[in-house]
């Protein structure tokens, strides 16, 4: 697997030359939760930036609440806007594979983001975060820092492939470290659900040394429950995806929240910029770009803090 972290400034620099007029369609899920909100934020910001710098480039952005709407959005883009390239974060893999395949076969450039299609080789470019690495990084941190026999609870997301990959990575990383997983349940990437779940776990287990919440929204809920129970200091909480508030706590050296794991929503910026470069022929672009999860620590937290991001 190629693991390349691409500096966006370098990419945009490659676009310096004269460009032909191209239309790029961007289709992403609607901002129904924090991470998707940040995705929208980054997509809009990148598009505005590119349109300003390169007036010849034209963008069509569509956000979608479900798979069926996304399919119609794609059909509209092809039929009425005559897009030359498509950047798509499929709402679900299975239902979108067919429609995207047809678009690719018609000669349109296709960049798939984050959620892979169920048939390989359709897309020109694949840009994704690494869910396995997301779980593995957190698990590795636990294995490295927690004592043998430490007790942890795990808050999973909404049952899905993404969630399964993250948890599998986490479990492999702690395997053999002597860490005991007391309980594992779905917090559905939701603050309120996570709060209730954590309350009940605190009633149930007299000793918890660490909480892994597979998303920062859930970590916020868990932290509130721990504070209410007056058990702050007994355990650490590790979330994921680099929410502003969490990064801020790490930056300030909060003992309960020592680290965080990235799953950058800015990958959509990378994908759009790479597509712009590729489709205009400014530089050759193809293949897979997997963005591995990084561990945010008090030392590097400042680099991951974006003041005006909604997330």
């Amino acid at each position: 697997m190629t693991k390349i972290l691409i500096a966006t400034t370098a990419l945009v620099g490659a676009l310096a030359g004269p460009l032909s007029a191209e239309t790029i369609g961007v289709s992403i899920p609607a901002a129904t939760h924090g991470w998707a909100g940040a995705l929208n934020f980054h997509a809009e910001r990148t598009i505005a930036h590119l349109e300003e710098v390169y007036p010849d480039l034209d963008f069509v952005l569509a956000t979608t609440p479900d798979s069926a709407t996304q399919v119609s959005d794609l059909e509209d883009m092809v039929a009425t806007r005559g897009i030359d390239a498509l950047v798509v974060l499929p709402f679900e893999s299975e239902p979108l594979t067919g429609p995207i395949q047809r678009i690719a076969e018609s000669g349109t450039w296709v960049t798939v983001v984050d959620r892979g299609l169920s048939v390989e080789g359709i897309e020109t470019l694949y840009v994704a975060g690494d869910n396995d690495s997301f779980g593995r990084t957190a698990g590795q941190y636990f294995a490295d820092t927690l004592d043998d026999g430490a007790k942890v609870v795990v808050m999973r997301g909404i049952p899905s492939t993404v969630d399964n990959e993250r948890v599998a990575g986490f479990e492999e990383a702690i395997d053999g470290s002597g860490i005991e997983v007391l309980a594992m349940d779905h917090g559905n990437w939701n603050r309120d659900t996570a709060f209730t779940l954590m309350q009940d776990w605190l009633s149930r287990f007299p000793q918890i040394d660490a909480v892994w919440a597979a998303d920062d929204d859930m970590a916020v809920g868990a932290l509130a429950a721990i504070e209410q129970a007056g058990r702050t200091g007994e355990m650490i909480v590790v979330g994921g995806a680099g929410m502003k508030e969490m990064v801020d706590r790490i930056r300030n050296g909060d003992a309960t929240v020592p680290v965080n794991v990235t799953y950058p929503p800015s990958m959509i910026s990378t994908a759009i910029e790479m597509t712009a470069v590729g489709v205009t022929g400014a530089a050759p672009m193809s293949g897979e770009f997997i963005i591995a999860s990084e561990l945010i620590t008090p030392e590097n937290a400042a680099d991951y803090y974006f003041e005006d991001s909604p997330y």
Partner: peptide, 11 residues
């Protein structure tokens, strides 16, 4: 609410 929060969380 999604619009007010810009898709994120209002705190």
């Amino acid at each position: 609410i999604t619009w007010l929060a810009d898709g994120g969380t209002l705190s």
